[in-house]
Design a protein around this nucleic acid. Structure first.
Length: 453
DNA sequence: TTTTGAGTTGTTCGA
DNA sequence: GTCGAACAACTCAAA
């Protein structure tokens, strides 16, 4: 504590929790009685994968929304770049802060950076408190009878689901006491998060990043689509998904808030338990992916099943480019890939179709697809993206039988029976098919049999 | 330790 | 057109 003019300030470090409502770190900071200095660090350091383009676009808007919301509390959002530990320590030191609070990011590299930051601050006599604002269950929390982490979702969820309760939301902050002087902040415009030359983000206007947009999205989902969720989420022509994934990724809304909203709707008789359970299981998949990534730090870049290391993936740059750009000649694949580029999003069912097409029909390494999704998706999430690509390729822990290869035509027939989705996103000029599905299927089966044998 | 049942999302073929 | 079986083998989780 410095001087005689009140308590030393507290640094409130925002991570993947860009919200004020139901945020444990924000609530704790507000209750501390200390002046609060909100900080966001754009973490650039070793082992940390740079954000993809769509994620950068989203973060730009979300930080602006957070800064505005903080202004209403009398606070300012301080922006810094650099390795997390250095940037946070510099702000703490400069402000003479006595405490730092943050909500954990559970990815291995991020967790390591947080541990380094914590070590450093604590050795300088600064109190550090960490919270969970982004998962219903943190990695390592759900264990089987042997005390070991689960490797398959169904068993994981059987154990995790019964422990979920609506719980109480953390209080919103009122006015946050301001420090006598504010640390210098970088200018968001200087970070260049919004794309330029070219600005490809015109179609992203369908999104409203930030806490207000997240709350509106949750409300619209619960009111309008939850009741039919289980059936319609697999329809490409119905927009039956929750569309919450990017908001959840950046923590503009927490999974606990979604859980409460959904259970409340069921309780009020606005939706059946079955639809709610289907959605809750999707929240469970987020937790499960984070758990798997913590268990297997190489999930994003190494086959979980080692026999896949022997698989003879094809190097086919022209076909990879055709896939990326939606020029494969398979209407549903091309529609989905164009949808992705235009809006930064693709429905879950479409993701499975294009992932199966890349890894089976084209026999191209799933890591190529993972990288493209990482760059293009507004909800790009290291754990979920990697887990799902490995699942689609068959190289993951919770693997499907390798002969389970999607047929683009029958998938289109069941998920887009009237062709509305295809017309919307790939209405004009479809190329001739770049592969024959039956032959490609046989090729993939043969290659996978050889690698697995 | 051994056994047993099961595993997000599928496709094809033949009766 | 509809239906059920076959498509491999393996790993995981629990009893």
């Amino acid at each position: 504590m410095s001087g005689g003019d009140g308590p030393a300030p507290l640094v409130l470090l925002f991570r993947r929790d860009l919200r004020l409502t139901d945020n444990p770190a924000v609530a704790a900071a507000a209750a501390s009685g200390r002046p609060v200095i909100p900080l966001f660090v754009l973490h650039e350091g070793e082992g940390v994968r740079p954000l993809g383009g769509a994620s950068r676009w989203w973060l730009d808007k979300s930080l602006r929304a957070l800064a505005t919301a903080l202004e209403a509390t009398g606070a300012r959002l301080v922006l810094r770049r650099g390795p997390l530990a250095e940037a946070a320590a510099a702000v703490v030191r400069g402000a003479g802060a006595a405490e730092l609070m943050f909500s954990r990011v559970h990815e291995p590299a991020a967790a390591a950076a947080e541990a380094e930051m914590t070590r450093r601050l604590e050795s300088a006599g600064v109190e550090v408190r960490a919270f969970n604002a982004s998962l219903l269950h943190e990695p390592g929390q759900v264990l089987n009878g042997q005390g070991r982490p689960y490797q398959v979702f169904t068993a994981y969820w059987r154990a995790a689901r019964p422990t979920l309760e609506p719980g109480r939301a953390f209080a919103e902050p009122g006015r946050l006491p301001a420090p006598s002087t504010w640390p210098a902040s970088e200018a968001l415009d200087d970070w260049g998060l919004h794309p330029h030359r070219p600005d490809w983000s015109g179609g992203f206007a369908v999104w409203t990043p930030g806490e207000a947009g997240a709350k509106a999205a949750l409300e619209a989902f619960v009111d309008q689509r939850l009741a039919d969720y289980a059936a319609r989420r697999d329809r490409l022509d119905a927009e039956g998904g929750s569309r919450l994934s990017p908001h959840l990724h950046w923590g503009e809304i927490g999974p606990a808030q979604a859980l409460r909203a959904v259970l409340t709707a069921v309780h009020a008789g606005e939706a059946r338990g079955g639809a709610a359970e289907k959605f809750l299981a999707e929240l469970g998949w987020r937790d499960f992916a984070a758990d798997l990534l913590a268990q297997h730090p190489h999930l994003p870049d190494r086959n979980l099943r080692p026999q896949f290391d022997r698989l003879a993936w094809r190097r086919a740059p022209a076909e990879l480019a055709a896939w990326r750009e939606g020029r494969t000649g398979f209407p549903v694949v091309d529609a989905a890939m164009r949808h992705l580029r235009a809006t930064g999003f693709m429905p879950n069912r479409a993701r499975m179709i294009v992932a199966s097409f890349l890894t089976k029909d084209l026999l191209i390494d799933w890591r190529e697809g993972e990288a493209w999704f990482w760059d293009c998706l507004v909800d790009a999430d290291l754990a979920s993206n990697a887990m799902n690509w490995q699942w689609a390729a068959g190289s993951g822990v919770d693997a499907q039988p390798f002969f389970r290869i999607f047929n683009p035509s029958s998938q289109a027939q069941s998920s887009d029976p009237h062709g509305a989705y295809v017309r919307r996103w790939a209405g004009e000029s479809l190329a001739a098919p770049i592969v024959d599905h039956a032959a490609a299927r046989a090729r993939a089966l043969e290659a996978m049999k050889r690698a697995g044998g």
